[in-house]
Design a protein around this nucleic acid. Structure first.
Lengths: 214, 214
DNA sequence: GTCTATAAGCGGATAGAC
DNA sequence: GTCTATCCGCTTATAGAC
């Protein structure tokens, strides 16, 4: 499932130029929607950022809503990917550390996607509810089983699996979603390699070892 | 500083009825802005939710922007409060546990305020930047000193103070800001006392003790 | 203080030429 | 496929009576 369902048909792209346009539109739309939200973004913004006219944009996507859904759909897979990779067969310390590292890499490399999803979920996820209750819930259910197994084997402390996953999501996405606050308060930014490395180390350490002395 | 600066003067409230109206408007506006964002909210929405006409609303607040800033200002203190209460004199385990508990209580009792700030910061904090770089940065600086002292005394593991604070903010606010996702994935909601208690215990445990067996 | 009426402008979407 | 011109509804804000 690489595309979200579309309510209305839309021209199938045939030419190289058409595909390139569609891609440029989606990039421009991601930036606009992530920074100003659905209602704060006008089609004129997106069209000019993508370098074409408003009616031409609407030739590629039949409505603002359809464009928004397409942007969400395109970024969805990258969003779900790191959790899919959480590997039951590995040592929990390594597997969880790698999950944190992948999520933080995503916060650094795709902060706009993170903010887009954050905004959507903050507002009640009207267009993502089906995914949250479907694919995401299923995926999380399978991963909580992995965590429970680790706990049963004594390789992980008896932490609630759901809350562990929430804690990883929250701490890692924080650096993308609240980047301006992080910067205002600490001066750091994930785009700075040094700060990124410190963040990976600090977040991994806190989640795995905790803040109290051992 | 209980009010944010206002660019334009506005009628000073004199009567009981006037104050009550102003308060009802701010409540209605908080709900609307938190759920649909600044641009997704119309003054007609707010006016009808507050039980008065649109022009009458604009008698109390001279513009939509002024209303939005007033809502932000009114909720700001409650937002900063728990961190102010983080007490250097106490045992770090107890002080941090209480901070987590207070933040989670706020996520349960004032989720709309949490979502309002989250949306604002996500979009670059255009109207809060001064606070983030001023009061908040100062407050955080004083609290990182507390944490550093605890570490120097060997009462806390050598975690980076900024990242510890970010981790607490992220994990606690997650349950308000991403409540629909939490519910979709785990079925829980902070308004359920049992889930709230579990959450306090799980988050505190993870941050203090970590996920690995001790 | 509160209302009805209305001005003024923006933004999504379409018509239709090229 | 791409554009110019345009329609039309919605929204902020004001005028002015009560």
């Amino acid at each position: 499932m690489t595309q979200s369902p579309r309510t209305q048909p839309r021209p199938v792209r045939k030419t190289r130029a058409g595909e390139a346009n569609e891609s440029r539109i989606l990039d421009a739309a991601l930036g606009a929607f992530a920074e100003r939200g659905f209602h704060g973004t006008s089609l004129a913004d997106v069209a000019s950022a993508a370098g074409l006219s408003k009616p031409n944009l609407l030739y590629y996507f039949r409505s603002k809503e359809a464009l928004y859904v397409a942007v969400l759909g395109r970024t969805l897979e990258a969003w779900l990917d790191p959790l899919r990779a959480l590997d039951a067969a590995r040592d929990p310390r390594e597997a969880l550390a790698e999950y944190v590292a992948r999520k933080l890499a995503l916060s650094r490399d795709a902060p706009l996607a993170s903010r887009l999803f954050a905004t959507e979920i903050l507002q009640g996820a009207p267009r993502l509810m089906a995914v949250l209750e479907g694919d995401l819930a299923d995926l999380v259910a399978s991963k909580t089983a992995v965590i429970r197994r680790w706990i049963a084997d004594g390789r992980l402390a008896p932490v609630d699996p759901h809350h562990l996953i929430f804690a990883i999501w929250a701490t890692t996405q924080h650096y993308a979603d609240f980047a301006v606050q992080v910067r205002a308060v600490s001066g750091g930014d994930l785009s700075d390699p040094e700060f990124h490395a410190e963040t990976v180390a600090a977040v991994t350490r806190m989640l795995l070892e905790g803040a109290l002395p051992r």
